[in-house]
Structure formats: structure tokens, C-alpha cells
């Protein structure tokens, strides 16, 4: 009995540690979405711009960001200010993580947005133009609502990947779920914390899936 109680107590403290790590994971996840979701749109529009001076730089940015590992980008963003400008790094772990994640995901979102924008038939733009809608009105009233519906499936893919990618924040020693679990696993020489961390990630993915299913049902009123 005492053994069981001791186990339960130990499990409770492990769970507490992991839950705290999961809190950080969720924070990285949410902050990345807050910045990357809007940032993707100007990038998508820049990528579609007729002006070479806008399109080319955006293309190069997308190539670099999508062509190098996120882990590398996190390290670059974190250590960059120190090695390039000699700025001390204290307190910069978490912001650096958010910056790197936001830019990285904005680039992936941008390509999804572009796919959505380009899938809207030209007739929709023409109908709006003939009715006298301005470019801005056409974008916000006619095009964007239809884009949102079309990009939901690829976006759900990307967002589920994001919750798992947050584990990369450990590269710069941010105490997110995976780093906490790994440390606990080493300290206890037990696989239990890793399995438990897996359950947390699975729970996160489950919630995300539900949110996207809900959104798809909400927008399912038209075809």
C-alpha cells in the first residue's frame, strides 16, 4: 500500500512537471500561430506580385526558410545577435524561439495561402469588378472567405505538425514538454516520462483536429 502511495506521489510530481512543460509548448504553439497566420498573407501576396523587386526577395526568403532545418534557424536567430552584433543573450531564449517559429511557419502558410488564392476562379474577380467592388472589397468580401474554406485541410496538416515541432525549442534550452520529459527519463532511467509526453502531444493534436473539423462543418454550408 505504502509502495503504491509513494508511486502515486511520484507520478503526480512527474505529471506536474510535464504539465508545466506542456504549458510552455502550448504557449510556443499559440504565439507562433498569432504571428505566423497573418504574416503568411503579405508573403503570399508578395510571392504573387507582378513586381520583380517584391516577388524575387520573397521567393528567396521562402527558398531559404523552407530549404533549411527549423533547428538551424532557431540556433541562428538565437545566437545571431551575439555573434553579429555582440548583444548579450540573457532572457532571449523564448523570444528567439517565437521569432524563428513564426518566420518558418509564415513561409509555409504563405504557400498554402497562395494555393488558395490562385484556386479562386478569375470569374469571381471579374464578377466583383463589374459590380463595382474595389480591390480591397473584392479581397475581403469575395475572395478571402472562399480561400479560408479551401485551405482548411492543408492548414490542419501544418498546424498539427507545429504542435510536434515545438519540441525543437529544446535546441536553445527552452523548457518545453519534450525537454522536460527527456530530462525526467534520464534522471529516472525510465521510459515512462517519454510515453506520458507522447500522451500530451496526442491530446494536443486531438484538440487541433476537433477545432479544424468544427471549422470545416461551419464552412460546409456552401460548395
Amino acid at each position: 500500500m505504502d509502495g503504491f502511495l509513494a508511486w502515486l506521489q511520484d507520478f503526480g510530481s512527474l505529471f506536474g512537471q510535464l504539465a508545466e512543460g506542456f504549458g510552455t509548448t502550448v504557449l510556443i504553439f499559440l504565439l507562433t500561430l498569432v504571428f505566423a497566420l497573418p504574416l503568411g498573407m503579405p508573403l503570399a501576396l508578395g510571392r504573387m506580385s507582378k513586381c520583380v523587386w517584391i516577388r524575387k526577395p520573397v521567393e528567396i526568403l521562402l527558398l531559404i526558410v523552407r530549404g533549411t532545418p527549423l533547428m538551424l534557424q532557431i540556433i541562428f536567430v538565437y545566437f545571431g545577435p551575439y555573434f553579429l552584433f555582440g548583444i548579450p543573450l540573457s532572457g532571449y531564449r523564448f523570444p528567439a524561439t517565437i521569432i524563428a517559429f513564426s518566420i518558418n511557419y509564415a513561409c509555409y502558410f504563405a504557400e498554402i495561402y497562395r494555393g488558395g488564392l490562385e484556386s479562386i476562379p478569375v470569374g469571381q474577380h471579374e464578377a466583383a469588378q463589374v459590380l463595382g467592388f474595389s480591390k480591397k472589397q473584392t479581397f475581403f468580401r469575395i475572395v478571402l472567405p472562399q480561400v479560408c474554406k479551401r485551405i482548411l485541410p492543408p492548414m490542419s496538416n501544418e498546424v498539427i505538425t507545429l504542435i510536434k515541432d515545438t519540441a525543437l525549442a529544446q535546441t536553445v534550452a527552452v523548457m518545453e514538454l519534450f525537454r522536460v520529459a527527456n530530462a525526467a527519463a534520464n534522471a529516472r532511467t525510465s521510459l515512462m516520462p517519454i510515453v506520458l509526453a507522447g500522451v500530451f502531444y496526442l491530446f494536443g493534436s486531438f484538440v487541433i483536429t476537433r477545432v479544424f473539423n468544427f471549422a470545416e462543418r461551419k464552412l460546409g454550408y456552401y460548395r
Binding site: 476562379p121 463595382g132 468580401r141 456552401y222
Partner: peptide, 22 residues
């Protein structure tokens, strides 16, 4: 090819421009 706005009801298709343009 009609080019109606698929995300708007028939009523909204007819009133969107009068309200927001005119």
C-alpha cells in the same frame, strides 16, 4: 458561366453590391 458568389446566399448575392458599393 454565371459567376455567382458561392459563399453567399441568393439574397446576399443580390444585395452585396447595392449595400457595399452603392
Amino acid at each position: 458561366s454565371f459567376n455567382l458568389f458561392p459563399h453567399l446566399s441568393v439574397m446576399d448575392n443580390l444585395t452585396e453590391a447595392p449595400i457595399h458599393v452603392a
